[in-house]
Design a protein around this nucleic acid. Structure first.
Lengths: 159, 159
DNA sequence: GGTCGAGGCTAACACAGTTAGCCAGATATG
DNA sequence: CATATCTGGCTAACTGTGTTAGCCTCGACC
């Protein structure tokens, strides 16, 4: 496990255990028994850590979707994963990620299962993605009252 | 124009002209020819400024939607407004807003036109909202390539 | 065995939000 | 009219953030 990977792991643990605002250079360094400036020997800064996390998250989401066969299953899986990893989900999907540093193909791989389930129709895939993304974010942010889940059925109703 | 309103206006101008990360207490204060600590005589902190901005934004979005009659028009209007006010849109719709301080009814008013266009079907209204929200955020974050707008048609296709 | 890079460290800077406490001027009160 | 109070500004300061500069040590390699 390279130092970069250890940093990514520490960052992720921080995100899961203490939430998004706990992802600071000093906290990450603490987890590794190190001082914050030393992190810069391995990583260009906080943004790069976030990019590493995004890559990891996108990979996992792609795998998760790939395990499903139909759209409804993918919707459920998407929601379940996101709600199980809310802070990581936000880091990975909110904010514009810089594709330079992202190893190429990560995004495509994440989208592939969905695209396949929709017979390669990119527009519908994007619409589905947007719907899932919107639902998850609104739910995470508590923008809905206490019902809501019927919308997963709506995603199915979409097709 | 009360001091609170002036603060809100300054914050909004900052958001529009210089982007989200320019929304700092010191910048807001500068716009008013004041020092940052003085803001606390009128506002409890940064979070409250964001709540004020959210209320304003939700109001405007509600008005914007109310001007349309069908779902497709609302989709276009929603997207147009969001892309014209990206930073404000983010502040208003991202992050959980505390409803305590929000004058009650603001949220309902924003949602009302959409709900009416859907004959009071809350689930479909939420699905539409989520779709629009997802599309806008993904577009704002540059998560799509350079096509995309066909999805607006998809929103129509949804119903 | 000397060289040198990898990977730690401390000190420091700019800037964020925020608090405490002071002070002038307007405003209200006796 | 004089006095008290309240409003809304101020400076100084604290904590926590990302980040940079520069030093030092240890282990690997010619």
């Amino acid at each position: 496990m390279s130092r970069r990977e250890e940093i990514t792991a520490a960052a992720r643990a921080l995100l899961e255990e203490e939430g998004e605002e706990a992802l600071t250079m000093r906290n990450v360094a603490d987890r590794l028994g190190i001082k914050a400036p030393s992190l810069y020997k391995h990583v260009s800064g906080r943004k790069e850590i976030e990019t590493l996390l995004a890559a990891e998250a996108l990979g996992e989401m792609g795998e998760t979707l790939a395990r499903e066969s139909d759209l409804e299953g993918m919707g459920d899986a998407y929601r379940t994963w996101a709600l199980a990893n809310p802070a990581l989900y936000r880091v990975a999907t909110t904010r514009p990620l810089d594709r330079e540093k992202l190893s190429p193909g990560v995004e495509e791989a994440a989208a592939a299962p969905l695209l396949e389930a929709l017979d390669g129709d990119r527009d519908r895939a994007r619409a589905f993605w947007a719907l899932a993304h919107g639902l998850v974010l609104l739910e995470m942010d508590g923008r809905f009252p206490e019902d809501a889940d019927i919308e997963a059925a709506w995603a199915a109703g979409l097709d």
